[in-house]
Nucleic acid binder design. Structure first.
Length: 196
DNA sequence: ATGGAGATAGTCT
DNA sequence: GACTATCTCCATC
């Protein structure tokens, strides 16, 4: 697989409804370029959050930490959680909404697997089946905060395999207590790479 | 196979 | 001072 055949997702892709973007990101490829190496993973699990949703980090307004969620769509919003982990989101929402993003929860490792293993530590078998794990495997931290995902660079998302609607499963989001009635977690049915 | 505790630190009240 | 959009390890079934 050569990098030249990758097709970056355009800015307009991220200007759709957040839950729609979350579903359409399934099957796309997350591409990380670091120290001359390339890491690629197929996105298999996502969650949608937007400003009118009590579980969204932007719900209580703009702060220094969540400002990227209010910025232009197609950029990376990264947050630090539980004193130990980073999680990666793609800013995505309709133009008339102020903020929203899609949490990338799990990917299927495709390229650079030995580098991912090095970042994770060899004791672990599960490389990227959870938001904290995939951030660690892809060397994603605050340095990439606000990165434009629609441009060739250290972190980007490119078009991938299209996923049939009937192989997309939705469920309540994981690890939150608010708005559990919203089934805004999406994953590829029968994928062995999802977080649970 | 499943469950609970502990690690650990940024962010907001 | 409380609260996380988590993970790993070790316990017990």
């Amino acid at each position: 697989m050569s990098i030249s055949c990758y097709r970056l997702l355009p800015r307009s892709f991220y200007a759709q409804d957040t839950a729609v973007v979350a579903q359409q990101l399934l099957g796309c490829f997350l591409v990380r370029i670091i120290r001359g190496k390339i890491l690629v993973g197929k996105i298999v699990e996502t969650e949608a959050y937007h400003i009118h949703d009590p579980a969204c980090h932007a719900y209580h307004g703009k702060t220094a930490a969540n400002q990227a969620l209010f910025g232009p769509v197609g950029h990376a919003y990264i947050y630090f959680i539980y004193g130990m982990y980073y999680c990666l989101n793609a800013v995505a929402h309709m133009p008339h909404i102020q903020a929203g993003g899609v949490l990338i929860r799990a990917v299927e490792p495709l390229e650079g697997i030995s580098y991912m293993q090095k970042m994770r530590g060899i004791q672990s078998k599960n490389l990227t089946n959870g938001p904290g794990k995939l951030a660690q495997a892809f060397a994603v931290d605050k340095k990439l905060y606000g990165t434009d995902l629609t441009k060739k660079g250290p972190l980007s998302i490119v078009a991938g395999e299209s996923v049939a609607q009937d192989s997309i499963v939705s469920s309540p989001r994981i690890g939150i207590s608010k708005a559990q009635e919203l089934h805004w977690r999406f994953y590829i049915k029968n994928s062995p790479w999802v977080s649970r």
